[in-house]
Design a binder for these strands. Structure first.
Lengths: 244, 244
DNA sequence: CGACGGATTGAAGCACCTCAACGGGAGTGG
DNA sequence: CCACTCCCGTTGAGGTGCTTCAATCCGTCG
């Protein structure tokens, strides 16, 4: 969440699909020269998932790493009795598969139809070994995700329902800007996920999300264009609310 | 939290204080040869803090990185109205200072009298640049902390008070084993932090911590030797409770 | 011994949850 | 093209888990 894009200068070249990749400069590949990119791509594959389909489940062996090129994913975990917590959403350009364990701790599922670049973990690690600047980039990504996870810890541990929803909208808005979506001309933000997903991300129930959104609307902080589209009316007050 | 120690073979040598460091094999230095260690140490300093003193505050420029050699720290954040959330506890061997930002996002304070190795960030980064295996180690540390933070997200988002307290005791116990404390002969675990710290870590109130500990004691899952010392009576059931 | 701060226990309150009914947009079939 | 249905979202009423407020206990230190 909220990870700022890390842009990197890269020598552009023609004749290779990765060079035209819309998210290349955001993604981990952005740091590679076109020569390196060619070698990198050689070990990768493209996978597609329809909305609702999983990329992997918690407990699955962590055999691959991925880079999301289009679509939105959720990272979730189930408790034995069915309670679900979403640890984060992934947007185009995001890297998927940071772990030191043999098994994935979270399930990754597509919220919208999605496309990913898939790399076998072993081969990816080997490539990283021979390209130290990739290692550094990976560290930077992990550090950003850690900061985002800790921010979510503060949200879940100490914020009220209203504060959580306000924070969520602002986080989503920050991601929208960095995720280079060329739609939404004048400041409308799209919620690609359902109320259930938002609830499981914020540690609340669906009904509470609905009520808090209605309350924000009633106090003229936001407007609900459609159920999935929101416009900020008073961003200042929204930020005040979000910080407690 | 809960980060497993990453042990690394290292050539031991005499005549350098770092080589005798009790936490060396746990810490980031464990990966260095004695030759590298000498260069590394040259840029570091030793700092001590009494219980309650801060190493840095949120918002301070992130000028240094640290390695904790003795004591226990807490990482916390305050909301404007005084609500506090603790994002994690640090034990001997832990690395402190993972961030890509210019400012610290959390306050670091000593819970017990503590000793740290301090390195200027710029010089540390330079040293890492010339030692790729250190970069890899840093990535591993960040990945472990990310896993721990996400586990805390699940705890805060979806677990009940009883489940949170049970989880906390098990996490603390896992850390005790890895943090090479030679005390506690027969399975007693020490709580170095106050009830207030536990509460702010688990997103609960002091009174709730107290009540849940009493309840665990009443159901014969634990025994409270002293306020700060706990013994597991039925670890199996405690683990079942912790997972929901 | 007396005082102080942290911990425990009790009683009442509130934020969010649970249960339930209703509404509306999208897809389907007549 | 409309009626039907299904699913998701919204709204309302009542319940509950944790909090809040308050009193007491207890270990430590002067």
């Amino acid at each position: 969440m909220e990870m700022r894009p890390i842009r990197a200068a890269a020598v552009l070249d023609a004749g290779h699909p990765c060079l035209d990749c819309a998210v290349r400069l955001l993604a981990i590949c952005g740091i590679l020269s076109s020569e390196e990119l060619r070698m990198f791509k050689a070990s990768g594959a493209t996978v597609r998932r329809a909305a609702g389909e999983a990329i992997f489940f918690e407990g699955d062996p962590a055999a691959h790493v991925y880079n999301l090129t289009s679509g939105v994913l959720r990272l979730s975990k189930l408790l034995p009795d069915g309670r679900r917590q979403i640890a984060g959403f992934l947007f185009p350009g995001d890297f998927l598969g940071i772990t030191m364990e043999d098994e994935h701790a979270f399930t990754a599922e597509a919220i919208t139809p999605s496309t990913l670049c898939q790399f076998p973990r072993a081969r990816f690690d080997g490539f990283v070994d021979t390209h130290p600047h990739l290692e550094r980039r990976l560290y930077a990504i992990a550090a950003h995700e850690l900061a985002a996870a800790r921010q979510q810890v503060v949200l879940l541990g100490r914020k009220t329902a209203a504060e959580r929803v306000a924070s969520f909208l602002l986080i989503l808005d920050a991601r929208r800007i960095s995720s280079c979506s060329d739609e939404e001309p004048d400041g409308d933000i799209t919620l690609p996920m359902s109320r259930a997903d938002i609830a499981d991300y914020l540690g609340l129930r669906i009904e509470t999300i609905s009520r808090e959104l209605s309350a924000l609307k009633a106090s003229r902080l936001i407007r609900l264009t459609t159920t999935q589209t929101i416009r900020f009316v008073d961003r200042e007050r929204l930020m005040e609310l979000a910080e407690g």
